[in-house]
Design a binder for these strands. Structure first.
Length: 638
RNA sequence: GGCGGUGUAGCUCAGCUGGUUAGAGCGAGCGGCUCAUAACCGCUAGGUCGGGGGUUCAAGUCCCUUCACCGCCA
């Protein structure tokens, strides 16, 4: 059986984890657990991407060393993964020595293949994206289209990777590996992108201190993507002299393996074009599949039209438990598509599938069985009944869906089985048989069937809800599955003690829950409203002074602007004001106004304005402010 | 502007290579049951399958066109 290597992207340590990170990681965890149950040799990797100017700057702003900043964010990720029950085998950090070795080795190989050269690179650079942009791509010719921050003009000597050389090899690879990128629509995007032609890629940055030094190129650091992508092999010991384990051969270098990268659609190109090209150049095997999933979107019925609300995941875990969150994430998103997140959908899913469905079914079966059979599982098993067939069909559907990463379908199949149990119980009405001694065997078979079907369902759920699955199994006197053989009918022992158990998934009052959330949100909102309050010190940062207008003239080619010369007592300045429509130049001379004296100079129509004249804005129309009686020029306004 | 995707019951979605009265879950209404977490079971809800045109004995399912939204590219 092929080994199975599954990876999350490594997460950038610029922000705390949110729903999106959790989703990707949970998906990988479910796959890892699923394939472990299948008996495959599994390696599950996640980690963090920690280099780059953005991190360097963020750390500096916080007065921390970059690594200290990274450590803190990493701790947050690791704590969350712990809470979510993530069973990764390794956690790679790009700041680790083992990673650096791998990056150096892959560069050595790429260089040996003749795919690196030095060249000049100039253009507009966004430090947030760590990318160069063309002027066209920038908003207003100067702002990053993604971050809306101002791009910097950079001109530097860089190391380039001959990506253009891999156009044909990549297309050939795509053609011969129809499952290289999934879903298919994403694969099409990638193919078209490559067909349109590939430009060589800058793979180094000059002057980047927080990065891996580029071997053989003094003063250059490895560009973040070449750095980051290599994590997938560095964690396996690639580049190390004598790896203690044989991870590299078992999970990447050898033949009988499956490598699966799970990524969000935002990093499609890096994983499906750059990464394979790097590997081809380095003479290394490629991953089998890059599977691209969509995003969780938040319905913004509330005002804020800008940026979607970030969904914090901790409160959900606090309230419902990690397993319920995991279940929801997999059940309510069609893998590969976008999905909408809402608290309402969450509660509804929780109540219908887990509380009313699985939880309640366990509860009614356990209660009946305990009552009828002295606190034990029924004494007679049964090998011929509709539930047996239902369970077999459900397991087949479940496994087919899981193999295709159709988690929603897999879980639906399990819910259907639970539904069949309830149906079966209503048809057989076991509660009516409890007091009839002569029906004891019939009753036993009925309850045993129900319990056994639940056992199968719970086993199937174990990759998705490891803890809850064990709890269900314990409640019905069964064991957690050791392998898929345990999904076969007949695993429930007879006359096993049935513990008295609490509700596994207590039903949530949806209206109350949503009302409580709304109240919290309102409280937050009112706090936010108070937020804009500034301290007196902050106000005094603005230096307002009285000044007299000593000269005024219309700005050529502008119908709104006037060029004013104002006397601040100790100095004179030029100020450009957009008041030409309301005030004639001649009328203004001699008037006292209030100006912002410490404003950063700005060019308006080619004239440098060294301040700003204060005016009330009456429906957009400026109305100049002036002192009630003349005061010396330069008097501070406060 | 080019390429691709999506548009099916109030909501979330199934509907493979065209073929009986277009399905499921949730929500809603009605009825049943009482073992269970005010749960569970049954029935009902009559949706022009975005619009228009075409191919066919037969189209949600193929072709053309058009609208809306999304993605990638330019």
């Amino acid at each position: 059986m092929r080994s199975f290597y599954v990876t999350t992207p490594i997460y950038y340590v610029n922000a705390r984890p949110h729903l999106g990170h959790s989703y990707t990681t949970v998906v990988c965890d479910v796959l890892a657990r699923y394939h472990r149950l299948e008996g495959r040799s599994v390696h599950f990797l996640t980690g963090t991407d920690e280099h780059g100017q953005k991190i360097e700057r963020a750390a500096t702003e916080r007065g921390l060393a970059p690594i200290a900043h990274a450590d803190e964010i990493v701790a947050g990720y690791q704590a969350l993964w712990e809470r979510l029950g993530i069973s990764h085998d390794d956690f790679i950090r790009t700041t680790e020595p083992r990673h650096r070795l791998a990056v150096e080795e892959i560069i050595r190989r790429i260089a040996a293949a003749g795919d690196l050269y030095s060249g000049r690179h100039d253009g507009w650079y966004c430090t947030s994206c760590e990318l160069f942009y063309t002027e066209k791509e920038l908003v207003d010719g100067k702002r990053c289209p993604v971050h809306d921050s101002e791009a910097e003009w950079r001109s530097e000597e860089n190391v380039f990777f001959r990506l253009s050389r891999y156009e044909t090899p990549l297309l050939e690879w795509f053609a011969s590996h129809p499952e290289f990128v999934r879903p298919e629509s994403r694969f099409n995007e990638v193919k078209r992108f490559v067909e349109a032609g590939l430009r060589d890629l800058s793979v180094s940055r000059a002057g980047l201190k927080w990065g891996i030094p580029f071997p053989g190129h003094e003063g250059q650091a490895v560009y973040v993507w070449l750095d980051a992508l290599t994590n997938y092999v560095s964690a396996l010991g690639f580049g190390r002299e004598a790896p203690a384990d044989d991870l590299w051969n078992r999970f990447w270098g050898g033949g009988e393996r499956e490598v699966l990268h799970i990524v969000g659609k935002d990093i499609l190109r890096f994983h499906t074009i750059y990464w394979p090209a790097f590997l081809l150049s380095a003479g290394l095997p490629l991953p089998d599949t890059i599977w691209v999933h969509g995003w969780w979107l938040v319905d913004q019925r509330k005002i804020s039209k800008s940026g979607a609300r970030v969904v914090p995941i901790e409160p959900l875990i606090d309230r419902f438990g990690a397993d319920a969150v995991r279940y929801f994430l997999l059940r309510d998103m069609v893998f590969g598509q976008d999905a909408g997140f809402s608290d309402e959908a969450f509660v509804e899913r929780y109540n219908s599938d887990l509380a009313n469905g699985l939880g309640n079914t366990v509860s009614r079966l356990v209660t009946l069985s305990r009552r009828a059979f002295d606190g034990r599982t029924p004494p007679c098993a049964c090998d011929d009944n509709p539930l047996k067939e239902g369970a077999a069909a459900a397991v087949e559907k479940y496994r087919d869906a899981m193999a295709e990463l159709q988690f929603d379908r897999a879980l639906r199949a399990v819910s259907e089985l639970v539904g069949q149990v309830n149906q079966y119980l209503v048809e057989r009405e076991p509660w009516k048989l409890i007091r009839q001694e002569e029906q004891r065997e019939t009753l036993s078979r009925i309850l045993w069937n129900g319990l056994e079907a639940v056992r199968v369902a719970a086993c199937a759920l174990s990759p998705v809800m490891p803890t809850a699955s064990s709890a269900v199994l314990a409640a019905i006197g069964a064991e957690p599955p050791a392998g898929w053989a345990d999904l076969a009918w007949g695993g429930l022992a007879v006359e096993r003690p049935l513990p008295e158990s609490e509700a596994l998934f207590p039903r949530i009052d949806k209206d109350k829950y949503l009302a409580a959330l709304a109240a919290d949100t309102e409280a937050d909102a009112s706090e936010e409203e108070q937020d804009p309050v500034i301290s007196i010190d902050r106000f005094f940062e603005t230096e307002l002074r009285v000044a007299t207008i000593v000269a005024a003239a219309a700005v050529p080619k502008s119908d709104k602007l006037l060029q004013l010369t104002v006397d601040l007592g100790s100095s004179r300045r030029t100020v450009v004001a957009g008041i030409a429509k309301q005030y004639g130049a001649a009328d203004l001379v001699g008037r006292q106004v209030v100006v912002v004296a410490n404003l950063e100079p700005a060019k308006l129509m080619g004239i440098e304005s060294q301040g700003m004249v204060l005016a009330a804005s009456d429906d957009g129309e400026p109305v100049l402010l002036h002192p009630e009686r003349p005061v010396p020029d330069g008097t501070r306004v406060r």
